[in-house]
């Protein structure tokens, strides 16, 4: 059971964005993807959900090539938590989360009580149940992020792809969102987490993939990947990794301004 990228390459016109990217996301695993702006992280999510087609290489989902699956089949297996700013303001929270049932309902079948239960459970998990009748436009960024997360859970996918889910969020909400992701992997989902915050990433992820200029330059345990030598190579000289680990045994990354 895995989501597998094999030799994925993609370019916008002449400009290569991803080059021969290969990695595996196993069920139950939380994998972080880090890298500088423009490293190809968001494009990678587009390729993994077939929003874009790779120039070469392929993605397979539990052994089946992505290109063999219909959009609905794909959406039953893979859910994306987008950056929360991009939800239409005039829909209610309940409407948005119910949209997560589309892959199972298709476009015609009415919502059943079971769907409503699943949606309700998803909203309770991310703590937005009490907002269910409110319009998305009236929520804060953190609340919207939890709505987007609830919608992804309502899809009941096997794999979760999170595209910078903590962007624009304060520390408390960052921790909450990452905790939902952690909980989901404990229930057996595979989760891919695109993140800018290296410390958070190292703390929460089982494995970290470092993308730089479209190439996977490292893929391994946070403790081994998050090294000063590698980060300087990827992000430039203004970064330090402390010799000591934090009390929980995670590396500490500091910018040197």
């Amino acid at each position: 059971m895995s989501l597998r990228a094999e030799a994925l390459s993609f370019s916008y016109g002449e400009r290569p964005v991803l080059r021969e990217v290969a990695f595996v996301l196993e069920a139950g695993e939380l994998v972080g993807v880090v890298g500088p702006n423009g490293a190809g992280k968001s494009t990678l999510i587009d390729l993994l959900t077939r929003v874009r087609a790779p120039g070469s290489g392929r993605v397979s989902l539990d052994g089946v090539p992505l290109s063999k699956l219909s959009r609905l089949e794909l959406a039953r297996k893979i859910a994306v938590v987008p950056q929360a700013v991009s939800l239409p303001h005039a829909f209610s929270v309940g409407d948005i989360v119910m949209m997560g049932r589309t892959p199972h309902l298709g476009f015609l079948a009415p919502e059943s009580d079971e769907d409503r239960e699943i949606v309700g459970a998803a909203m309770r998990t991310t703590d937005v149940w009490e907002f269910r009748d409110r319009l998305v436009g009236n929520l804060s960024g953190g609340e919207r992020q939890r709505v987007a997360f609830a919608r992804a859970l309502a899809q009941q996918p096997r794999y979760l792809l999170l595209d910078e889910p903590t962007a624009h969020l304060d520390l408390r909400y960052q921790v909450e969102v990452l905790r939902y992701a952690r909980d989901a992997t404990r229930r057996g989902l595979g989760a891919l987490l695109v993140l800018h915050d290296l410390n958070l990433c190292a703390r929460v992820c089982d494995r970290v993939v470092v993308l730089s200029e479209g190439v996977v330059v490292a893929n391994g345990l946070p403790r081994t990947v998050v090294s000063e030598q590698l980060l300087k190579q990827v992000y430039g000289p203004d970064v330090r990794v402390l010799d000591a680990l934090d009390p929980d045994g995670h590396p500490i990354v500091l910018p040197t301004v």
Partner: peptide, 14 residues
Amino acid sequence: NLLQLGEKQAAQLG
């Protein structure tokens, strides 16, 4: 309704 989320999210929802 799905399309109101934007084309990318609509595609990712099937």
